[in-house]
Design a protein around this nucleic acid. Structure first.
Lengths: 336, 336
DNA sequence: TTGTAGGCGTTATCAA
DNA sequence: TTGATAACGCCTACAA
């Protein structure tokens, strides 16, 4: 079956193909009557402009890529993790509002150079630009992509000297709120359980925590290494309880580790918050299933995803862009 | 800056543009030497075929759409829910393996007809086919899309008379395992907390449950209405405990409702499993944070997502396809 | 084994 | 206000 094209509509309407395009685009040059007639005819025929042809002609794909790193040999990627899925969720909406689509760009962790892969995707016009999230601090991707003049935005990574466009969180406000709350409850010391320092998030959260801690009346009970996993949260409990004093509390760099800590406390009949106060970070959905409700430092993922998309489109449109820093808030529940 | 095209490589290699295409596609017609020479030259120049042109010429987008229903006026879609993100995650991997890409297709819940929207997406060649998940039972989308000859696959919906391609779960095996376990622990009665019957999943799970229940030595303590939400699980507790007898247990149609029930039990100092046995369904990640560990009927989402993609590509390639039914398993933890 | 040439269905420029 | 026409870059039948 032959595809319906502009020509067919043009013939039926007794105009030229270009007029059909103009009418469908609602060009202000055309009189209303023409627009109406052509539009009606197009609807009647069920004509839809071929987006493939339109993209070729305009040399734009109107697609934004979201990079997802696959583990070779598995059917598992990062999207099932709530950090990624929440960001993606809001990216889709934000892109939709600006007439872009989001495409997923899987790449193999130990495949050929990721940089090469993404360059190809841009050069071959698969996507107009790429959003990255969850890169490790040592990743060379942003620096290399910059060299090659590839439009991209990075979520949650350090924007080295503001050289590339990034979206980040500033937990300063939420930390301030948190310490204020803690002081109000007469806590004296606090443990800090760190995330995986490969990630910028872990480092910046720690820095922010320490900065605000200094100004507070609490003192540091200790820093415990973690890696964001539930088991590392569980394991941290042993160390914490070996050092614990009265009126101590713990801060976890994500809710997942906090949930591991909860598990330990349940198993050992330790009462939260009576025996120890607990605070998490992320406001994961799963955290709200915990009992007692986990107080947590929110990560504004929805805002970050939307901001990344809007920044990227601004780049396409050659508008001036600034790195975006989004403050987050502290959510108080029952865990301290 | 001008785009690098076949022509440039052709000129440099002293061949025609078509030969460049053939070489890059590894055509068996060409001698190895030509393929090598052209490939090297292309690499040296950093030439990447323009996928936009290729798609126009072949009239295929090599993209698979995943439909996501947006709530108007919010930046929230379904992808943040683990049901969707897990399916999507495996779809991306499966598509990658067969050289397809996954594109997200948002549509407004109360926007213009969804059917119209998806027809357009296909007619305009945005995507070659579409995967749906989480449709309600009364949705007219599958029937209408079928009429219009649009390639699609539906996950978790009833395949009415096998008329359209679908991927479903058969919980029969896991239910059998579950009841066997329950009998081994001397449970006498079981409550069934239903999901939202708008969804096929709720209905089919209930049917499967009842069928296996009949053959077991347990009796039905009652059916409680739920809607998959945590709060409906919490609310179910009141009804359950008003009817509860010794050696009763509860089955929840998803883990989320079970987590609401846990919340109630914690608040009311009811011990799981000593006072009541609990079983969930889905094997959500968040369920594994519950204490005591929630036994659950798994939903094979990873397999469903991958199967959907492979079915769809089979449809493109005009291979004969059959609806896929994937059995699931029972995961025993500490909640009964 | 390789080259030629006619699509594919738009967009965009220029002329009328 | 409209119409012609030249790109856009690749695919592919057909010819050589």
């Amino acid at each position: 079956m032959k595809n319906l094209t502009r020509k067919d509509i043009a013939k039926a309407a007794g105009v030229s193909p270009s007029t059909v395009s103009r009418a469908l685009a609602g060009s202000p040059l055309l009189p209303k009557s023409t627009i109406e007639r052509v539009t009606e005819l197009a609807a009647k025929f069920g004509y839809r402009p071929n987006i493939l042809a339109s993209r070729l002609a305009s040399n734009r794909s109107f697609q934004i890529g979201f990079a997802v790193e696959l583990w070779p040999g598995t059917r598992r990627g990062p999207i099932r993790m709530s950090y990624y899925s929440t960001i993606l969720d809001s990216m889709v909406s934000a892109a939709f509002e600006r007439d872009y689509n989001v495409m997923l760009l899987p790449y193999l962790k130990d495949g050929k150079s990721a940089v090469e892969h993404f360059s190809n995707l841009i050069l071959s016009k698969h996507v107009d630009g790429i959003v990255f999230a969850g890169l490790t601090r040592e990743s060379n991707i942003p620096a290399e992509l910059l060299k090659r003049n590839i439009p991209f935005v990075v979520i949650g990574s350090e924007a080295v000297k503001n050289k590339f466009v990034s979206v980040n969180t500033d937990p300063h406000l939420s930390m301030t709120e948190m310490f204020k709350s803690l002081e109000g409850r007469n806590y004296r010391r606090i443990f800090f359980v760190e995330g995986d320092p490969e990630y910028y998030h872990a480092v910046s959260l720690r820095a922010s925590f320490m900065k605000v801690l200094e100004k507070s009346s609490l003192s540091l009970a200790g820093v415990i290494k973690g890696d964001y996993s539930r088991s590392s949260g569980y394991d941290s409990a042993g160390k914490i309880f070996s050092m614990k004093k009265k009126r101590d509390c713990v801060f976890f760099s994500n809710d997942r580790m906090a949930s591991g800590f909860y598990m330990y406390c349940h198993e050992h009949k330790i009462a939260i918050p009576d025996d120890i106060g607990v605070i998490g970070s992320d406001n994961d959905d799963s955290a709200s299933a915990l009992y007692p409700g986990l107080s947590t430092v929110e990560q504004p993922r929805v805002e970050m995803g939307a901001a990344a998309v809007n920044l990227l489109i601004d780049v396409f449109e050659r508008k001036p862009v600034q790195p975006v820093v989004i403050p987050n808030s502290f959510i108080e529940r029952k865990s301290f």
